[in-house]
Design a protein around this nucleic acid. Structure first.
Lengths: 121, 121
DNA sequence: CGGTATCCGAATCGATACTG
DNA sequence: CAGTATCGATTCGGATACCG
């Protein structure tokens, strides 16, 4: 891909969004923001995410410094996740996005229906 | 996938995010918010997006009522895109996200480096 | 309980070529 | 200029099985 872009920030925004901008990351952040600390299987049940994707996404979030992982070597083992300060700072923009999403879901649905009817038949 | 979720909003947030939450949608919104009105190839050059993805994403955004498409049947043809009121209302949360992304890119990079060094070698 | 490893179909995306 | 069509490569993501 060429690099003759007039929007120099786009590449960088793109970079960050491809890291923390995917669906599961956002939902995990929202959950942790809401409940504070959650265990692996609590997140799993909460989000309806597969074990594999949860594991992968949590590892990424930990790597990016957004989520903290605490391992308790008890039997049975217990692992807790919560937001780091960086993760907390991500709450604001994410919350704004989530709120907008909820508030405009029906509007978008209506727009879709209109568009489909005007285009489709 | 089961549906025994404790986070009833997650499914719906998920729905909206899968519509307007992808990388290209966000970048297109940001560009249109910044410049007001742009033609197809202006967007293409601006974002470094492939023709195919731009076409698909714009169609989705139009369908969801976020972007307005104006076709001028001149020769050569000229098509202009701008934000609808709904798209404008999306500016705020998107801007917050973009700002956070830019502001924390280096922090994330540092966290990654630390993590990789502690884990990887 | 909290993962990792493997498999495999589905969805995504870029490159390329073609059209009005 | 502004798309659409097609193809191949990569990625995503769930299901399943197994380990500490």
């Amino acid at each position: 891909m060429l690099d003759e872009q007039g929007c120099p920030d786009c590449k960088r925004i793109n970079e960050v969004l491809s890291r923390v901008g995917d669906r599961w990351s956002v939902l995990i952040i929202i959950s942790l923001a809401q409940y504070g600390t959650l265990r692996f299987n609590e997140l799993k049940r909460n989000l309806g995410i597969s074990q594999r994707m949860l594991s992968l996404t949590l590892k990424e979030l930990e790597r990016d410094g957004l989520v903290n992982r605490t391992y308790h070597p008890t039997i049975p083992p217990k692992v807790e996740y919560n937001l780091t300060p960086l993760g907390e700072s991500f709450r604001q923009p994410v919350a704004a996005l989530g709120q907008w999403a909820l508030g405009n879901l029906s509007t978008i649905d209506a727009a879709r229906a209109t568009y489909d009817e005007a285009t489709g038949p």
